[in-house]
Simulated scan of single mutants.
Amino acid sequence: MHRFLIDPSDIQDGRVHFAEEISLQMKKVLRLRSGNEVVVFDGGGVDYQVRLEVVETKTSLGTVLSANDSHNEPGIFITLYQALIRSERYEYALQKGVETGISRFVPFTSERTEVSIPSQSKMGRWRRIIKEAAEQSGRSVVPQLSDPILFSNMIKNLNSVVLIPWEEEKNQSIRQILSKLRQDPGLDVTYIDLIIGPVGGFTSQEVLDAADYGATSVSLGKRILRSETAGIVAAVTVLYEFDDI
């Protein structure tokens, strides 16, 4: 069933007023008609089953049939600090990260970053990709996208559990570290940060600097992963180990 993100103010007295952008999509692209049912969500964790009453290109109207708390959001809030890489690869990481269950994305630049800071228009495009991926994958909360930041500033504002996958780490795997975290009853693992480097990876000094602020370097396995793939693999591993897929 088609899902649409709407503004909370668009739901009033059991009726849903669809904005022009969604109305045009329903009318011209999806060919929906009155009587069809869709699901809408406002980013607050509730899904609304809606029957369409009027479908026009400028505005559409629907009636709320039911409202149900969504249970699709992971219990662990994962922030993916993803180094800037080529735009199409970054967009892949955003889209698949949303589908995986990542809750927040933070672009950053580091010593080996080879691309420029994205423009506001590109950031807008990335937010649309996140929104559409949330609609498609059944998320009830749209993940956040923060403004780009410098690595040196980023590591000063991390949560208590921070993992930095690094291809030079040979002593501890991500699964070993997660197993230890699971066995520590006094540790709050509600928030977990993942830091993924650019093409070319992190320098040894950057990993040491991150460790000074509490980050733990981990291995993702025997094979070298692309930057846009590493964050997805790490996030899936975290959610799997905590039975939160």
Rank of each mutant, 00 (worst) to 15 (best):
H2G: 01
H2K: 15
R3L: 10
L5Q: 11
I6Q: 02
P8N: 03
P8S: 11
D13P: 02
F18N: 01
E20Y: 08
K28H: 13
L32R: 08
D42Q: 09
G44A: 12
G44R: 14
V50P: 07
V50F: 02
R51G: 03
E53T: 12
E53I: 13
V55C: 07
E56W: 12
L61H: 03
L65P: 03
D69L: 15
N72P: 06
E73L: 05
G75Q: 13
T79W: 00
Q82F: 03
L84E: 07
R86N: 10
R86T: 09
Y90T: 04
Y90S: 01
Q95H: 07
K96H: 03
V98Y: 04
F108L: 02
E111K: 11
T113P: 00
V115L: 07
S119F: 08
R127I: 08
I130L: 07
K131V: 12
A133S: 10
A134I: 05
E135D: 11
Q136R: 02
G138Q: 05
V141R: 14
I149C: 12
I149L: 13
S152D: 15
S152T: 15
S160N: 14
S160F: 09
V162M: 01
V162W: 05
R175M: 13
I177A: 13
S179D: 13
Q183K: 15
P185S: 06
L187M: 14
V189Y: 12
T190S: 15
D193E: 05
L194F: 07
G197E: 01
S204M: 13
E206C: 06
V207P: 05
V207R: 00
L208P: 04
A211I: 11
A211K: 12
L220K: 08
K222V: 13
T229M: 12
T229P: 12
A235M: 10
T237D: 06
E241F: 11
I245W: 15
